[in-house]
Computed example of a mutant assay.
Amino acid sequence: MAHEMVYGTWESSVQKLPKYLGALQKYNPGTIVEWQHKARDTSTGAYVIGYVLWAFQPCIEGFQHCRNLISVDGTHLYTKYKHKMLIVATMDGNQQVLPLAFAIVDEESLLSWKWFLRQLSRHIIRGRRGICLISDRHAGITRAVRECLDFVPPNGVHRYCLRHVCSNFNSKYKNVVLKDHCWRAGSEYQIRKFNRTMEEIKKHSLEAFQWLDRIDKEKWTASHDGGWRCGILTTNMSECINGVLKGARRLPLTAIAEMTFQRSVHYFRERLLGCTGFELVHDPTIRISSRLGRNETTRIHDEMDWAQRRARQQAQQRNSSTQSDVPVPGSQD
């Protein structure tokens, strides 16, 4: 196939992945890579990859200046091997999504989520307290969170994505009106309005009311959240990164890792341009000011250029002082 000619096969990509991630660590100090291998392959003697996680140093440091909020999500890889990609993201003070870490696991299970959350605690959270983790209601996540102290009060909390709650609710009762009421109940910030909406659900269906009432209200409603969510009700942060990488999910592992690196670089470049107001172009001596609306040329000078400019300035100063000492014809003492 054409993409195999460009990116290689899945098997060859798996062999290249350790070398590629090692190069990222070498040339991007602070980048984190963690492996969890399965038993050796009896036929080849090589280790079989179970899980692998990577996080780029600028993303890790950037999280220290973001909200105490992270969103995790898992998605399928469209390959002959049924691996999953796990993504964690946060949001900065400018309402921009910041990717934090990526992982490839063989399946979404209690073991894989426990391993993933442990790596987040160790490399991303780093003892920071008051973290709110938003996820769907996957059984593996909910059980793994209970065993991770960073997301258990008083250190942190776990909250459910309201959109997933409404989706599960609608899958069971298949009623658009009830689904709308479910979303309204979860997104209300006042308890009295939440109670009123729940009463409307109860009038339509007692069974639907009881289904929602069995879910811990702190985990899915804004009215009982206590302010942990910072107004974020869904996992759209991590799903946004999933959407950006959708095309890469058909590629081999090394190509996926390379795509996450390129997208992360693009993120920081765009944020830099948004802060400085300058648009970078290929010529390193040229920059275009979007604020002033005109081209502004600058040259990158090394020490020799600086010395030459300084010498010219001193020569001009000597010439100007010499000319000022010459008497002007017709002048009087």
Rank of each mutant, 00 (worst) to 15 (best):
M1W: 10
Y7R: 06
G8P: 05
W10A: 12
S13G: 14
Q15E: 15
L17K: 06
A23L: 13
L24I: 08
L24F: 08
L24R: 02
Y27I: 07
G30M: 02
H37E: 03
K38S: 07
A39G: 01
R40L: 15
T42W: 06
G45M: 06
Y47G: 00
F56E: 00
P58I: 04
P58M: 02
C59Q: 00
I60H: 03
G62S: 00
H65P: 02
R67I: 04
R67G: 05
D73F: 04
T79I: 07
Y81P: 03
H83T: 09
I87S: 03
A89I: 07
M91I: 15
Q95A: 09
Q95G: 01
E107S: 15
E107V: 15
E108C: 01
W113T: 07
K114E: 14
W115L: 02
L117F: 03
Q119A: 12
R126N: 11
R128D: 00
L133M: 07
I134C: 08
I134P: 02
S135F: 12
S135T: 14
R137D: 07
T142K: 13
V145H: 03
R146E: 13
E147K: 09
C148W: 07
L149F: 12
L149Y: 13
F151R: 02
V152I: 15
P153R: 04
P154F: 10
V157C: 10
R163Q: 12
R163W: 15
H181G: 05
R184K: 14
E188H: 09
E188W: 09
R192W: 06
R192S: 14
I201P: 01
K202H: 14
H204K: 15
S205F: 03
R214D: 07
K219T: 15
T221C: 05
A222R: 11
G227N: 04
W228E: 04
W228G: 03
N236H: 05
A248N: 06
A248E: 01
A257T: 09
M259C: 10
T260H: 05
Q262H: 11
Q262D: 11
H266V: 05
Y267R: 08
R269S: 13
E270W: 06
L273S: 13
P284G: 03
P284W: 02
R294L: 14
R294M: 14
E296N: 08
H301G: 02
D302K: 09
M304D: 11
W306R: 10
R310H: 10
A311T: 06
Q313E: 13
Q317I: 09
R318F: 11
T322I: 13
Q323E: 14
Q323S: 11
D325M: 12
V328N: 03
D333I: 09
